[in-house]
Simulated assay, not measured.
Amino acid sequence: MKHFLLLTLMSYSVLALTVNKKIEENLAFEKYDQVIIDANQALLTETNRKQIASIMYYKAKALYHQGELEDAFEILKELVEDYNFEIDYEKVLNLQFEISNARYEKSGSSNFFGSSEEAIEFYEALIAQAPYSKGASTSMLRIGMLQQDDNDDIAAMSTYHKLIATYPKSDEAGYARIYIAQFNIFSMRGIHGNLELMREAKTQLRLFINQYNKHPLLSEAKDQLASLEEVEAERTYNLALFYLDPVHSRPAAAKRYLYKVVVDYPDTEAAVVAEAKLEKLDKSYKGEIKTRQISKKKNDDLQKKLEQQIFTPLAPQARDRSTRRIIVRPEDSKGKFLVPVEDLGLDLVPLENTDTVNKEEGEK
């Protein structure tokens, strides 16, 4: 009897492996219709729960590749709910995420879920079961976005901060920084320019700009940071105007605020008008912005000159290798050079403080 049971189990295992191998081969060759036919046929007679779960997973994968996203997702939901002890949880959740991501990219929302609460639960489950999977950081970003859609901004900001802390190098962390900055900018407008919110927004934008060179939102982040700089510069400039008013006349304080605008926000429009006022108030003022502009021009001219010297094309005599004189042969260099060193015939000027210069001076 035991021998018969063992043979039965062995034959069942061989049959299951054969079915799975056939389905996997058809998946690999993108024969999705055949996968669905074979899966449906196998499910009619299969009784082993682990094998049923495997076949259902294959079927969901085939349906996904055929574009039947809703049907594929429903099968995977059933696996998570009813076969959670028989499935590779991370593999199923990752495929669910991949499908929901495909729908999200098409329509801007994953409408497989009946509510945002259900969607958040799904993404939280994916993160909990597979915290280092490729979909984990995106899932956390989606949670924050869904919370914002539900007007739960406090929870959303907490999620974004957690995302930055957990996956600091991900592209999603960049989006989180931008969303935090945008939320603070929006909130700042509603409560008369709260400085704490402005500082937080500027911090997130600067960290974002320093970290990401090719992020889709890089240009927008730079514009937002420049806009905040302009707001701060204008506020500081207005304080200077306040102390220049005869009613509150304090010229020394006014000069300090004007100078702060010029030094701290040199690239703003407010800095230009602040400098003009400083020049009238303080005859000894030399002009920070003008000095920087002149210095920048000098540096640019010097850089251009150096580049011209470095990248100047070789003289005609230097291009003709047949006329070049070999200065050092590899066999005479004690292993220092692997190829001959040739004289380019450029008649270089001797460097200062060298033996060449000293010899020439001695000869004179």
Rank of each mutant, 00 (worst) to 15 (best):
N358W: 12
L207C: 07
Q182L: 07
L244V: 00
N20Q: 15
Y104I: 05
D152M: 13
L348H: 11
L163R: 07
N26L: 09
N26V: 02
D264T: 08
I87Y: 01
A155Q: 09
D343K: 05
A119M: 04
A42M: 10
H248P: 12
R321Y: 13
K296H: 13
F73D: 01
E229D: 14
Y32Q: 10
N184M: 13
Y237G: 05
N353P: 07
D171F: 10
K283Y: 06
R199V: 14
Y285N: 09
N299K: 13
R206C: 11
R319S: 11
L258E: 03
K304A: 05
S158K: 14
N210C: 04
K334Y: 08
K91C: 09
I87N: 00
A221H: 00
F112D: 03
A53R: 00
S100L: 02
A53Q: 00
T356F: 15
K91F: 08
M140V: 06
M140L: 15
D332G: 09
Y32M: 08
L63S: 06
I209C: 01
F186L: 13
Q204N: 15
D223K: 15
D282W: 00
Q293H: 01
E269S: 12
M1N: 13
S107R: 09
D347G: 12
T236F: 02
M157K: 15
L197C: 06
E117G: 11
E279N: 15
L146Q: 03
L27Q: 03
L225T: 01
E307R: 07
V341G: 09
R319P: 06
E78V: 14
V262R: 03
D38H: 00
N26E: 11
K2H: 11
K260N: 11
E81W: 02
H65N: 15
I294Q: 11
L7H: 11
M157R: 15
A53E: 04
L344Y: 09
K359Q: 15
H248A: 13
E352L: 10
R292A: 00
N40H: 11
D332F: 10
F183A: 11
R177Y: 01
L344V: 05
D332C: 06
K280R: 11
Q51C: 02
T356K: 12
A221W: 03
A240G: 06
L195T: 13
S116Q: 04
R321I: 15
N48L: 01
K162M: 12
V263H: 07
K214G: 03
Y132W: 12
P251T: 10
T45K: 04
A102S: 06
E121I: 02
K202H: 08
Q182N: 07
K280C: 09
A136S: 04
L281F: 01
E220W: 06
L95E: 06
V272T: 11
E342G: 09
